[in-house]
């Protein structure tokens, strides 16, 4: 089996993770600029979490994407596709340049929102917000029926927590005691129209999930050791423990100073000169 063992992965240093995260951000921004379309803000806020999963903790095999024993990452925020494709390509699922050159083009595998039928490593096609947690619940139930120990990770945006379906799913994860499920919310506090708390207030999020029967850990979503520790604590639960929510406080547009915390960078492509400035920042970081 060509799969990298968990133990070997753990020796990756914080410096190496940071370097990988920067490479992911650069690829994502290059692809968005080339397509002149895409979502930079939410890709960059999710990048450090993706980095820890795909380059450190996840049980997966890029050469065998359908490996039965893999952990499952259900990404509900399908619009973060540039960051996701970048992470998957660097992990070895496909060639990075193939993604950068064809992202959002007609007949490309690399659709605007992730598509499982087109891109290896994508577990489920999403894009329409609010579906992912329900799907992750189904995957967790299905794996548990087979007594499989594989972990299920649901990556959610914060804005999509405004969808009613999410709370139906939040109820169900707790009702069915899905101890094999960890949901990570990319809490970047910004949605398309503005700050989440001004558009449709979500707080207090931790209290809401606790009240629905979840275990909650709140972390800095850009601090690698906090991301690793919280995900690892999730991995040590029994199959019928409470589901775990990692509320990851993040910064939209993280890593590029002029994009950070800016509503405008939710779904707008950088101009070529802005890309140059961003790449320069990500190289010196």
């Amino acid at each position: 089996m060509s799969t990298v063992s968990l133990e070997r992965n753990l020796v990756i240093s914080t410096e190496k993770l940071q370097e990988t995260a920067n490479e992911i951000r650069k690829l994502a921004l290059r692809a968005i600029t080339k397509a002149n379309s895409g979502h930079p803000g939410g890709s960059l806020s999710l990048t450090d979490i993706l980095t820890v999963l795909y380059f450190n903790l996840l049980k997966h095999d890029p050469k065998n994407p359908n490996w039965e024993e893999r952990d499952r990452v259900i990404i509900s925020k399908g619009h973060a596709s540039p960051g996701i494709y970048a992470a998957l390509s660097l992990a070895g699922y496909f060639e990075p340049e193939e993604f950068v050159n064809t992202f959002r083009q007609v007949r490309s595998k690399f659709q605007g929102h992730i598509d499982r039928l087109k891109v290896p490593g994508v577990e489920v096609s999403t894009g329409s917000l609010g579906h992912g947690l329900s799907i992750a619940n189904g995957v967790a139930l299905g794996l548990r029926l087979e007594s499989k120990k594989n972990k299920v990770y649901a990556l959610l945006s914060d804005g999509e927590l405004q969808e009613g379906q999410i709370w139906e799913a939040v109820m169900a994860s707790a009702h069915y005691k899905l101890g094999n499920l960890t949901a990570i919310v990319d809490r970047n506090r910004i949605q398309l129209d503005g700050w989440t708390e001004e558009t449709m207030a979500l707080n207090p999020l931790a209290d809401k999930f606790k009240a629905f029967g979840w275990e909650v850990k709140e972390i800095d979503g850009h601090n690698f050791s906090e991301i690793i520790d919280s995900i690892q604590s999730g991995s040590q639960r029994d199959l019928t423990d409470k589901p775990l929510l990692i509320l990851a406080n993040t910064i939209k547009g993280k890593g590029v100073s002029f994009m950070e915390d800016k509503v405008a960078w939710h779904g707008v492509a950088p101009k070529p000169e802005e890309l140059e400035a961003a790449l320069a920042e990500l190289t010196t970081n």
């Binding site: 489920v124 189904g138 139930l141 139906e168 169900a172």
Partner: peptide, 27 residues
């Protein structure tokens, strides 16, 4: 053990069925 009552929440039910199908079940 193979029956899941999802309560009065049809949207969640359908997407959960999709997740079960991803693991090879026939929901």
């Amino acid at each position: 053990e193979r029956f899941f009552n999802m309560g009065i929440a049809e949207q969640n039910m359908v997407s959960t069925a999709a997740g079960l199908a991803l693991t090879g079940k026939i929901p």
